[in-house]
Protein backbone atom coordinates (compact mmCIF):
# COMPACT_ATOMS: atom_id res chain seq x y z
CA UNK A 1 0.00 0.00 0.00
CA UNK A 2 1.64 3.22 -1.18
CA UNK A 3 0.54 6.30 0.68
CA UNK A 4 1.10 10.00 0.09
CA UNK A 5 0.71 12.42 2.96
CA UNK A 6 0.69 16.16 2.30
CA UNK A 7 1.76 17.92 5.48
CA UNK A 8 2.07 21.57 6.32
CA UNK A 9 4.63 23.36 8.39
CA UNK A 10 2.97 25.87 10.71
CA UNK A 11 4.21 28.45 13.19
CA UNK A 12 4.31 27.05 16.69
CA UNK A 13 3.37 30.15 18.60
CA UNK A 14 -0.13 31.49 18.39
CA UNK A 15 1.14 35.06 18.18
CA UNK A 16 1.99 35.19 14.53
CA UNK A 17 2.59 38.50 12.79
CA UNK A 18 0.88 39.43 9.57
CA UNK A 19 2.17 41.45 6.64
CA UNK A 20 -0.32 44.32 6.47
CA UNK A 21 0.44 44.90 2.75
CA UNK A 22 -0.17 41.43 1.37
CA UNK A 23 -2.26 40.04 4.18
CA UNK A 24 -0.02 36.99 4.35
CA UNK A 25 1.83 35.72 7.35
CA UNK A 26 5.35 36.78 8.23
CA UNK A 27 7.11 33.53 8.92
CA UNK A 28 10.60 34.82 9.66
CA UNK A 29 11.75 34.35 13.22
CA UNK A 30 8.94 32.02 14.22
CA UNK A 31 9.62 28.44 15.29
CA UNK A 32 7.87 26.07 12.90
CA UNK A 33 6.49 22.61 13.51
CA UNK A 34 4.50 20.01 11.61
CA UNK A 35 0.84 21.01 11.76
CA UNK A 36 -0.19 19.09 14.91
CA UNK A 37 -3.29 17.73 13.15
CA UNK A 38 -1.09 16.27 10.39
CA UNK A 39 0.62 13.99 12.92
CA UNK A 40 -2.55 11.87 12.97
CA UNK A 41 -2.33 11.51 9.19
CA UNK A 42 1.33 10.53 9.40
CA UNK A 43 0.67 7.96 12.12
CA UNK A 44 -2.24 6.48 10.17
CA UNK A 45 -0.05 6.16 7.08
CA UNK A 46 2.78 4.49 8.96
CA UNK A 47 0.40 2.01 10.61
CA UNK A 48 -1.11 1.05 7.26
CA UNK A 49 2.37 0.55 5.83
CA UNK A 50 3.37 -1.61 8.78
CA UNK A 51 0.31 -3.76 8.24
CA UNK A 52 0.20 -4.00 4.45
CA UNK A 53 3.71 -3.13 3.28
CA UNK A 54 4.47 -0.43 0.72
CA UNK A 55 5.82 3.03 1.43
CA UNK A 56 4.81 6.36 2.85
CA UNK A 57 5.79 9.57 1.06
CA UNK A 58 5.32 12.90 2.79
CA UNK A 59 5.21 16.07 0.75
CA UNK A 60 4.89 19.69 1.64
CA UNK A 61 4.51 22.90 -0.28
CA UNK A 62 6.48 25.61 1.42
CA UNK A 63 9.79 27.45 1.68
CA UNK A 64 13.13 25.57 1.69
CA UNK A 65 13.02 25.55 5.48
CA UNK A 66 9.94 23.30 5.37
CA UNK A 67 12.34 20.45 4.59
CA UNK A 68 12.68 20.22 8.36
CA UNK A 69 9.06 19.12 8.67
CA UNK A 70 9.64 16.39 6.10
CA UNK A 71 12.69 15.18 8.03
CA UNK A 72 10.65 15.01 11.21
CA UNK A 73 8.08 12.88 9.43
CA UNK A 74 10.81 10.60 8.13
CA UNK A 75 12.16 10.30 11.67
CA UNK A 76 8.72 9.07 12.70
CA UNK A 77 8.86 6.36 10.05
CA UNK A 78 7.92 7.81 6.67
CA UNK A 79 10.07 6.67 3.73
CA UNK A 80 10.30 9.57 1.30
CA UNK A 81 10.06 13.34 1.52
CA UNK A 82 9.22 15.73 -1.30
CA UNK A 83 9.54 19.49 -0.96
CA UNK A 84 7.37 21.45 -3.38
CA UNK A 85 9.07 24.81 -3.30
CA UNK A 86 9.32 27.88 -5.48
CA UNK A 87 9.13 31.62 -4.88
CA UNK A 88 6.28 31.60 -7.36
CA UNK A 89 4.15 29.54 -4.97
CA UNK A 90 4.18 32.29 -2.34
CA UNK A 91 0.83 33.66 -1.23
CA UNK A 92 -1.18 30.71 -2.54
CA UNK A 93 -4.69 30.27 -1.15
CA UNK A 94 -6.31 26.87 -0.74
CA UNK A 95 -7.35 26.76 -4.41
CA UNK A 96 -3.82 27.37 -5.72
CA UNK A 97 -2.27 25.20 -2.98
CA UNK A 98 -4.44 22.21 -3.79
CA UNK A 99 -3.71 22.68 -7.51
CA UNK A 100 0.05 22.77 -6.94
CA UNK A 101 0.08 19.79 -4.58
CA UNK A 102 -2.13 17.71 -6.86
CA UNK A 103 0.19 18.41 -9.83
CA UNK A 104 3.15 17.30 -7.72
CA UNK A 105 1.33 14.13 -6.69
CA UNK A 106 0.72 13.34 -10.37
CA UNK A 107 4.50 13.28 -10.80
CA UNK A 108 4.98 10.77 -8.01
CA UNK A 109 3.57 7.80 -9.90
CA UNK A 110 0.98 5.39 -8.59
CA UNK A 111 -0.40 5.38 -5.06
CA UNK A 112 -3.28 3.79 -3.16
CA UNK A 113 -4.13 6.45 -0.65
CA UNK A 114 -3.61 10.14 0.06
CA UNK A 115 -4.09 11.17 3.69
CA UNK A 116 -4.21 14.78 4.86
CA UNK A 117 -4.83 16.39 8.22
CA UNK A 118 -8.27 17.71 9.03
CA UNK A 119 -7.05 21.29 8.79
CA UNK A 120 -3.93 23.33 9.37
CA UNK A 121 -3.85 25.23 12.64
CA UNK A 122 -2.70 28.48 11.01
CA UNK A 123 -4.99 28.97 8.01
CA UNK A 124 -7.55 26.75 9.66
CA UNK A 125 -9.64 26.06 6.56
CA UNK A 126 -9.63 22.30 6.00
CA UNK A 127 -10.06 23.01 2.29
CA UNK A 128 -6.82 21.71 0.85
CA UNK A 129 -7.62 17.99 1.31
CA UNK A 130 -11.01 18.13 -0.44
CA UNK A 131 -9.44 20.41 -3.05
CA UNK A 132 -6.73 17.87 -3.90
CA UNK A 133 -9.40 15.15 -4.19
CA UNK A 134 -11.36 17.35 -6.59
CA UNK A 135 -8.30 18.11 -8.75
CA UNK A 136 -7.33 14.45 -8.92
CA UNK A 137 -10.90 13.14 -9.25
CA UNK A 138 -10.40 10.84 -6.27
CA UNK A 139 -13.15 9.55 -4.00
CA UNK A 140 -13.03 11.55 -0.79
CA UNK A 141 -13.83 10.91 2.86
CA UNK A 142 -13.35 13.81 5.27
CA UNK A 143 -13.21 13.77 9.09
CA UNK A 144 -12.20 10.09 9.09
CA UNK A 145 -12.04 8.81 12.66
CA UNK A 146 -11.46 5.13 11.96
CA UNK A 147 -10.25 2.88 9.17
CA UNK A 148 -12.23 -0.32 9.67
CA UNK A 149 -11.20 -2.44 6.71
CA UNK A 150 -8.75 -2.33 3.83
CA UNK A 151 -8.59 -4.65 0.84
CA UNK A 152 -6.63 -4.47 -2.40
CA UNK A 153 -9.33 -2.44 -4.10
CA UNK A 154 -11.34 -0.77 -1.41
CA UNK A 155 -11.41 0.77 2.03
CA UNK A 156 -14.09 1.12 4.68
CA UNK A 157 -13.89 4.17 6.93
CA UNK A 158 -15.94 5.89 9.58
CA UNK A 159 -16.29 9.64 9.34
CA UNK A 160 -17.27 11.92 12.15
CA UNK A 161 -20.44 13.87 11.37
CA UNK A 162 -22.64 16.12 13.53
CA UNK A 163 -24.56 13.46 15.39
CA UNK A 164 -22.53 10.30 14.94
CA UNK A 165 -20.39 8.42 12.46
CA UNK A 166 -21.12 7.76 8.80
CA UNK A 167 -19.61 4.53 7.46
CA UNK A 168 -18.33 4.69 3.90
CA UNK A 169 -16.98 2.13 1.49
CA UNK A 170 -14.84 3.52 -1.28
CA UNK A 171 -12.55 2.22 -4.01
CA UNK A 172 -8.81 2.89 -3.98
CA UNK A 173 -7.04 5.12 -4.74
CA UNK A 174 -8.87 7.54 -2.49
CA UNK A 175 -8.22 10.60 -0.35
CA UNK A 176 -8.91 10.74 3.38
CA UNK A 177 -8.73 13.67 5.73
CA UNK A 178 -8.38 12.40 9.28
CA UNK A 179 -9.27 13.67 12.75
CA UNK A 180 -7.46 13.14 16.01
CA UNK A 181 -9.53 10.10 16.96
CA UNK A 182 -8.00 8.05 14.13
CA UNK A 183 -4.61 7.40 15.73
CA UNK A 184 -2.15 8.19 18.44
CA UNK A 185 1.00 9.71 16.91
CA UNK A 186 4.31 8.12 17.84
CA UNK A 187 7.48 9.97 18.65
CA UNK A 188 10.50 9.83 16.34
CA UNK A 189 12.97 7.07 17.22
CA UNK A 190 16.72 7.48 17.45
CA UNK A 191 17.12 5.25 14.40
CA UNK A 192 14.51 7.27 12.56
CA UNK A 193 16.30 10.51 13.38
CA UNK A 194 19.54 9.10 12.05
CA UNK A 195 17.85 8.02 8.85
CA UNK A 196 16.22 11.42 8.48
CA UNK A 197 19.52 13.22 8.90
CA UNK A 198 21.08 11.23 6.08
CA UNK A 199 18.04 11.46 3.83
CA UNK A 200 18.23 13.84 0.92
CA UNK A 201 14.93 15.63 0.37
CA UNK A 202 13.77 15.78 -3.22
CA UNK A 203 12.75 19.27 -4.35
CA UNK A 204 10.20 20.09 -7.06
CA UNK A 205 9.76 23.63 -8.37
CA UNK A 206 7.27 25.26 -10.74
CA UNK A 207 9.37 24.44 -13.80
CA UNK A 208 9.73 20.76 -12.80
CA UNK A 209 6.00 20.51 -12.48
CA UNK A 210 5.27 22.45 -15.70
CA UNK A 211 2.54 24.30 -13.89
CA UNK A 212 0.10 26.74 -15.40
CA UNK A 213 1.53 29.98 -13.99
CA UNK A 214 -1.90 31.57 -13.89
CA UNK A 215 -2.92 28.99 -11.30
CA UNK A 216 -0.11 29.28 -8.75
CA UNK A 217 0.90 31.57 -5.91
CA UNK A 218 -0.86 34.80 -5.06
CA UNK A 219 -1.56 35.46 -8.76
CA UNK A 220 -3.36 32.16 -9.12
CA UNK A 221 -5.40 32.56 -5.97
CA UNK A 222 -9.06 33.56 -6.34
CA UNK A 223 -9.21 34.95 -2.78
CA UNK A 224 -7.48 38.02 -1.39
CA UNK A 225 -6.98 38.99 2.20
CA UNK A 226 -7.91 42.66 2.27
CA UNK A 227 -7.92 43.42 5.98
CA UNK A 228 -6.49 41.98 9.17
CA UNK A 229 -7.94 42.84 12.53
CA UNK A 230 -6.80 41.88 16.00
CA UNK A 231 -9.83 41.09 18.11
CA UNK A 232 -9.86 41.90 21.78
CA UNK A 233 -8.79 38.71 23.49
CA UNK A 234 -9.86 39.48 27.01
CA UNK A 235 -13.43 40.22 28.03
CA UNK A 236 -13.65 42.27 31.18
CA UNK A 237 -16.12 39.97 32.84
CA UNK A 238 -17.34 39.94 36.39
CA UNK A 239 -15.40 37.57 38.64
CA UNK A 240 -16.82 36.64 42.04
CA UNK A 241 -15.31 34.57 44.83
CA UNK A 242 -17.23 31.66 46.30
CA UNK A 243 -15.58 31.26 49.66
CA UNK A 244 -17.43 30.29 52.81
CA UNK A 245 -21.12 29.47 52.86
CA UNK A 246 -22.39 33.00 52.30
CA UNK A 247 -19.71 33.65 49.69
CA UNK A 248 -20.79 30.55 47.85
CA UNK A 249 -24.46 31.42 48.04
CA UNK A 250 -23.90 35.01 46.92
CA UNK A 251 -21.68 33.94 44.05
CA UNK A 252 -24.26 31.51 42.70
CA UNK A 253 -27.04 34.10 43.10
CA UNK A 254 -24.92 36.61 41.21
CA UNK A 255 -24.46 34.07 38.42
CA UNK A 256 -28.18 33.41 38.21
CA UNK A 257 -28.81 37.13 38.06
CA UNK A 258 -26.28 37.44 35.25
CA UNK A 259 -27.94 34.61 33.33
CA UNK A 260 -31.33 36.24 33.84
CA UNK A 261 -30.12 39.62 32.62
CA UNK A 262 -28.75 38.04 29.47
CA UNK A 263 -31.97 36.08 29.02
CA UNK A 264 -30.11 32.81 29.18
CA UNK A 265 -32.54 31.33 31.71
Amino acid sequence: MDIIIPIKQVPETSNVKMDKETGTMIREGVVSVINPLDLYAIETGIQLKEKFGGKVTVCTMGPQSAAKALKEAIAMGCDEGILISDRKFAGADTWATSYTISEAIKQLGSYDLIITGERATDGDTGQVGPGIAAWLGLPLATYVSKISDVTQESIIVERLVEDGYQILQMPLPALLTVVKEVSNPRLPTLRGKKKARAYEIQVMNAADLQLNEACIGLKGSPTRVIKIGYPKVTRSGKIVKASGDTGLNDAVDALLQFLEEKELI
Binding site: W95, G131, W135, T142, L160, E162
Partner: peptide, 23 residues
Protein backbone atom coordinates in the same frame (compact mmCIF):
# COMPACT_ATOMS: atom_id res chain seq x y z
CA UNK B 1 -19.44 25.19 8.09
CA UNK B 2 -20.62 21.70 9.00
CA UNK B 3 -19.04 18.35 8.20
CA UNK B 4 -20.87 18.29 4.88
CA UNK B 5 -20.61 21.99 4.02
CA UNK B 6 -16.89 22.04 4.72
CA UNK B 7 -16.44 19.01 2.50
CA UNK B 8 -18.75 19.99 -0.33
CA UNK B 9 -17.75 23.59 -0.87
CA UNK B 10 -13.97 23.19 -1.35
CA UNK B 11 -14.77 20.43 -3.84
CA UNK B 12 -17.17 22.69 -5.71
CA UNK B 13 -14.68 25.59 -5.61
CA UNK B 14 -12.29 23.52 -7.71
CA UNK B 15 -15.00 22.32 -10.10
CA UNK B 16 -16.29 25.83 -10.86
CA UNK B 17 -12.96 27.65 -10.42
CA UNK B 18 -13.65 30.15 -7.71
CA UNK B 19 -12.48 31.10 -4.23
CA UNK B 20 -13.92 29.93 -0.95
CA UNK B 21 -13.59 31.35 2.52
CA UNK B 22 -14.04 28.91 5.38
CA UNK B 23 -15.90 29.33 8.60
Amino acid sequence: ATSSGRTLMPHVAIQVTTGLTAD
